[in-house]
């Protein structure tokens, strides 16, 4: 056993996608399940089956509220899994869906959620081919949870660059950050802000395919979901053994998200996105990639936000508005609104 304190329990921080989640995954899951595929801890597992390279992933969705501006748990559950596959350079093919539903849940709502899953699957060009349903007492779950798993194929002809992440590479974000998390937070907490913030939840495989087929040398990609851009970049720096530098003034944030962040005391770099991709790309292809992204409906606000540095500190630096550099840490726990 590696947990020596008998009184330690799971808190919500363990599910926030930051330092505590990472520690939980390493200390318990990786420790018990350890194998070469899992230990890479990517957005999806890469599997070699016969002569084919496949990507395989799973994700659970426990969002509240179930329906929000810009989407619902159904659209989210399909897009989340499609995007995890797409950022590994895979073409998503098939999805499995598991439903855990609380007794008393409205059938009409369930139908609306299934409809929205089908629409997202159609848009992404994937099929939902298997599933499972469990019903539990209403005191255990008041609404519903969805788990989706997905499988995709890696096509080497239009896949990721064979060259690893190299100092000098350019970092691109496909659009404005923080919309999903901020939209959900405002709706969940019923904060009376007259807001126009819509979740960005979207399947990104079409946009990513366009960049790869456009001949851009993409070294790697990430979808900055839980923990936001800051956490995704820290994981990337750690995994690739490099330092990264991004510029505060180049990070696209909508006026609405920026204003709500100031009111609540949040940093948009730590807020979840569900329809954005980070690209690390050959600097010579950066402008081409930006042009391709901006032509796509989900990439209109794409921006170069920084670059890969020499150095093996596994750190992310932020050049601030005042010109000073500071380290951009990964999320420790979910952000909470400040008192005043």
């Amino acid at each position: 056993m590696t947990i020596d304190n008998e009184e330690e329990v799971i808190t919500l921080g363990h599910g926030a996608g930051g330092v505590l989640t990472g520690k939980l995954v390493r200390d318990i899951f990786l420790n018990q399940f350890n194998n070469q595929v899992l230990s890479r801890l990517g957005d999806a597992a890469l599997l070699d089956i016969d002569a084919h390279r496949m990507a395989f992933t799973t994700d659970s969705f426990v969002i509240s509220p179930l329906f929000f501006k810009g989407g619902d748990i159904g659209r989210l559950s399909v897009c989340g899994t499609v995007n995890d596959l797409a950022v590994m350079g895979a073409e998503p093919l098939f999805i499995a869906a598991g439903f855990i539903i609380g007794e008393g849940f409205s059938l009409r709502k369930l139908e609306a959620i299934a409809q929205s899953m089908r629409a997202a699957a159609d848009e992404a060009g994937v099929a939902i081919v298997t599933g499972d349903t469990k019903v539990v007492r209403s005191q255990d779950i008041d609404e519903l949870f969805i788990t989706t798993s997905g499988i995709g194929r890696l096509d080497t002809a239009k896949g990721l660059s064979a060259r690893p992440v190299t100092p000098g590479d350019t970092i691109i974000i496909s659009g404005t950050v923080g919309e999903h998390g901020m939209s959900i937070f405002i709706e969940r907490e019923a904060i009376a802000l007259a807001h126009a913030i819509t979740s960005d939840v979207a399947p990104l495989n079409g946009m990513i395919r366009a960049v790869l087929e456009g001949g851009c040398e993409v070294r790697c990609m990430r979808d900055p979901t839980r923990g936001g851009v800051a956490t995704a970049l820290n994981e990337l720096a750690e995994e690739k053994g490099v330092d990264l530098l991004i510029r505060q003034e180049h990070i696209p944030v909508s006026e609405e998200v920026a204003a709500c962040c100031e009111i609540l005391g949040f940093d948009p770099l730590y807020i979840a996105n569900e329809g954005k991709a980070l690209f690390v790309i050959d600097p010579e292809d950066a402008q081409k990639a930006i042009a391709i992204l901006r032509k796509h409906p989900y990439g209109k606000e794409a921006q170069v936000i920084g670059s890969v540095l020499e150095g093996k500190g596994h750190k992310v630096f932020l050049e601030t508005f005042s010109g000073a550099h500071r380290q951009l840490e990964e999320l420790t726990e979910d952000q909470l609104p400040r008192i005043c």
Binding site: Q248, D267, L318, E319, T320, F321, S322, G323, A324, H325, R326
Partner: peptide, 9 residues
């Protein structure tokens, strides 16, 4: 002051 790098600058 930290977030915008002013303390550091």
């Amino acid at each position: 002051l930290f977030r915008f790098g002013i303390k550091q600058a």
